[in-house]
Design a protein around this nucleic acid. Sequence first.
DNA 1: GTGAAAGCGCTAACAG
DNA 2: CTGTTAGCGCTTTCAC
Lengths: 347, 347
Amino acid sequence: MKPHVTLSDIAKQLNVSKVTVSKALRGHPDISRETTRLVKKVAEELGYTPNFAARNLSSRKSSTIGVVVPKIAHFFFSSVIEAIYDEAFYNNYDIALTVSQENAEREKKHIETLMAMRVDGIIVSITQETKDSAIFEKVVSRNVPLVFMDRVLQMNGTSQVTVDDKGGAMRAIELAISNGYTKIAHIGGYKEINIGRNRYEGFAEAMRKHGLPLQPEWVIHGGFGEDDGYQGFMRIYKSGKMPEFIFAVTYPVALGVYAAASDVGVRIPDDLDIICFGSASINKFLKPALSYVDQPTRTLGKAALDLVLEHVRESEDYQPKHVEVPTELVIRDTCIKKKLILDSAAK
Amino acid sequence: MKPHVTLSDIAKQLNVSKVTVSKALRGHPDISRETTRLVKKVAEELGYTPNFAARNLSSRKSSTIGVVVPKIAHFFFSSVIEAIYDEAFYNNYDIALTVSQENAEREKKHIETLMAMRVDGIIVSITQETKDSAIFEKVVSRNVPLVFMDRVLQMNGTSQVTVDDKGGAMRAIELAISNGYTKIAHIGGYKEINIGRNRYEGFAEAMRKHGLPLQPEWVIHGGFGEDDGYQGFMRIYKSGKMPEFIFAVTYPVALGVYAAASDVGVRIPDDLDIICFGSASINKFLKPALSYVDQPTRTLGKAALDLVLEHVRESEDYQPKHVEVPTELVIRDTCIKKKLILDSAAK
DNA sequence: GTGAAAGCGCTAACAG
DNA sequence: CTGTTAGCGCTTTCAC
């Protein structure tokens, strides 16, 4: 069996040139309707499959956007990714998706692979541990459009799509305060990364604004996973000084708090109330379902893709942008006004 | 700025040929250590990035495996995918991941893209609605190694990796029976797809074996998502004939049952007990945590990748394989022996 | 409307 | 050990 049908095979059969076939297949207006029809028919019959490697090499573009995310088994990312896919599909682009597993070295390797693939642009959400921006500088110096998404690095020549982390955090804390809480803890992410830093700052600012002191025992910094939530709670618990309320930096961290609290017999939300940043589709099945600061994942994914494409298309002196999408407070079974209700009941 | 550094640029600078550079960069033993060192040094200095399109075109291979899954925001798939990535990484392969969104048309398009990319092999988990195997026949006829994973199509020339759906389902039902239940319902998947069919058959066979009749009201067939679970429960509920126990075809379906049950005031596991196929990392935070038939997702992903690579490497007359990985019953807070305990307490 | 020529950047096969 | 020769399959000019 001949390994692969090529343009020439079709051309030969029709007694036209490769060029005609190439153009016809791409629907180029140069070619007459009749010829186009014929070419397509024969291509179909022969079972022609274009060779992207050849096409990309020759055209110097790939019509694919590279994506690097730290995790995939995670509601936030898988949801954003679906949105990116949909938007790419709609724009006739392919996505080359890679997963860094929160590992900076892998991240670097993936970006190198994407550049070697000559993707038209790259969207990345950095790992927890990414410090070195060298690889990203390299991307920029190659004139490959680069968009940071959610977890970003501040860099010239790159666009960014983030959520309003600080504002969202502030409103969450203010909700807690308006519910009567004053002993408020924060299990936060690394401060080196924007989402960790900004959510912390929103927390701190809201506290300051309402004259509440920050207790060092009640401010924890760590990673963004369940384990980190578990450990974070335990550190607070063992300090002997229990807060009334915890603001968790991510949904998984909040889940970790649930697990830890349950292990030591602390009841949520009665003994300890909680709110977090982000959610998951399974939240409605949690008892109690977490109230949370909603991150519009689809908006985020779509915005990220639109930004790269914008950059891809405008070429030369494109001015990178920073898009910040707003958050929304969603109230479920935690952080509700029960204290106030109790207070008024006591009267 | 010169768009891209090429082999020739390096070659020129060193006064050697492109071939020498090419070989040196790939660590070919032909080239002396000294030359190799020099070449690599210059490549680094110049910021050389290989061009995969050119490499693939010339070598007629891509060192990448295509993957098509129906969903990504889903614990089962995201976990399997992580395993596939890890195994590919370990074997120096790249993964081209695509998501069909349970849409057969997209699935087809993705497979065409992967073939156009000349991936070395393809792993696919078909959509709920995939009927037509034509596109897969095309893959096989092109001699592209094809491995079906979890959701499979029975086809000559393809390998398969599945879990022991029937056996797992049987054991789940037998557990329920041994716990004293006789009124057992099944909210199942489409019977056209192996996982739906086999889990149903395991259920049916276990029932038969223990002399329990199948009530038509208690056997529902539908999709694999939360909605399907919700609807399925409601159909059973509205039939007026409530079972004591439900076997849900997937974890999301079970979640849908939770939601529906909660909406109509049916308590789980007291009024209605349940078990399901598959789980999720958040299960431990559910109240009650679901007992389930565990699918070893990492094993599945690794096996799928190993199978494609095996096929890729053995070329010619490779005999496709069917690997079936065993399941395990995991007991959490549902389907426990409470009925027996009650019985003995009553004596 | 169509085609001839040239080349994208790399590797395979062979020769030295 | 190194280099020469020939493409891989396609798209781009630019003629006709």
